[in-house]
């Protein structure tokens, strides 16, 4: 895995302080949101915890600056508003973050199913996330929990049906 290319902002101390100036703050949160998605995608990580103090995303060791938990929460809330994040617990400590929105993932998977003519057949979640035939797809390597959420969304639209078998899932597309 190559090293992550941090943006220049990451070495700019004020970037770690929530700015009081409205316009600046919006811009700052935008940059941060983008950085969150990019970095997590780089790590192929789908969950983050606010209190993970030494996580390089929150903490620039060489600069000795770190994001405060309340600021992380703001960034995650911003991501939530665009459909890229979702809290996993009531205290909003644990978050699921995804590079594409659930909707986008759903469309991509459904397109792939149609392309490959698998409509009507049943496949496992592993096949979708880690199968050889999806290696060039954006959703390859997707977290299984996220995938379940994506498929539930598709199910609501009547495009597939989730089948639970012995604690693991199978899915049938229509």
């Amino acid at each position: 895995m190559t090293d992550f290319q941090w943006p220049w902002e990451y070495t700019f101390p004020p970037f770690f302080t929530l700015q009081p100036h409205e316009e600046t703050r919006q811009q700052q949160l935008n940059v941060w949101s983008e950085l969150f998605l990019k970095y997590l995608k780089h790590l192929n990580k789908f969950t983050v915890n606010i209190n993970e103090g030494s996580f390089p995303l929150y903490y620039n060791e060489s600069l000795n600056r770190r994001l405060s938990p309340s600021m992380i929460l703001q960034i995650l809330q911003k991501l939530q508003s665009t459909g890229h994040a979702q809290p996993l617990d009531k205290k909003r400590q644990e978050w699921q973050v995804y590079w594409h929105t659930l909707e986008e993932y759903g469309n991509m998977i459904y397109d792939w199913i149609q392309e490959t003519g698998q409509t009507g057949s049943v496949c496992t979640l592993y096949e979708i996330a880690n199968g050889e035939s999806t290696e060039d797809k954006e959703f390859h390597g997707i977290d299984e929990n996220v995938l379940v959420n994506v498929l539930r969304l598709l199910e609501d639209k009547g495009r597939c049906e989730l089948i639970e078998m012995d604690g693991s899932y199978g899915v049938k597309f229509f």
Binding site: Q19, P20, V31
Partner: peptide
Amino acid sequence: AERLGKLCRDESLEGLRFYPNFILEPP
């Protein structure tokens, strides 16, 4: 100057410092 968006702040254990507002106007 901060209110006018010309500066931005860095609040840390080392105290309060002000930087040019590169967030809005990247160098």
